[in-house]
Simulated assay, not measured.
Amino acid sequence: MTDHDEEPTWRPVRDVGMMTTVVAEQLAHSKEMLEMFEQARPDRPNARVLDDHTVAETRRVYGQMAADYEELFGEQGRRWQALTLGKATRRLVDAYVAVVDEHRQVLADILALNEQIAEWTIEKVMATGDAELGLRSLAMTLGAQHGAGSPGPYGPFGGTGRAPRP
Rank of each mutant, 00 (worst) to 15 (best):
L138S: 13
L142G: 07
A28N: 11
Q64V: 07
E132W: 06
Y96T: 09
V93F: 06
G155W: 06
K31D: 04
G74Q: 06
R136L: 04
Q76A: 05
G152Q: 07
R48C: 04
E35K: 06
L72S: 02
V125A: 11
K87A: 14
A56Y: 04
D101E: 15
D109A: 13
W120C: 13
D52G: 13
R91N: 07
H29L: 09
R48W: 15
A28M: 08
M65T: 11
E70Q: 02
A88R: 02
G129D: 14
L27G: 11
T121F: 07
G155P: 09
N46F: 04
T54Q: 08
Q105R: 14
G147Q: 10
R44I: 03
Y62C: 05
R78M: 00
P153Q: 10
S30D: 04
R59C: 00
L135E: 01
E32T: 13
L92T: 08
V106A: 11
P45W: 13
V55Y: 06
Q105N: 09
P42T: 02
R90L: 05
A66K: 06
M36Y: 07
R79Y: 05
E132S: 08
H146L: 13
Q105D: 03
T141F: 07
R79D: 06
I110F: 04
D109E: 13
Y69F: 08
E75F: 00
S150L: 12
P151S: 12
T21I: 07
T54P: 14
A40P: 00
G129F: 08
A148K: 12
G158C: 09
L72Y: 10
Q81D: 15
T128N: 10
G77Q: 01
V97F: 02
L34Y: 05
E32Q: 11
R41P: 06
V99N: 04
T84W: 00
Q116G: 02
E75W: 00
E119N: 14
M19Q: 14
Q145D: 04
N114V: 04
G152L: 10
V97Y: 01
M33P: 00
V61H: 01
L85C: 02
T141R: 14
K31S: 06
A112Q: 14
A28E: 15
L135V: 07
T20M: 01
Q145L: 15
P42E: 00
T58I: 02
G129M: 04
L111R: 15
L107G: 07
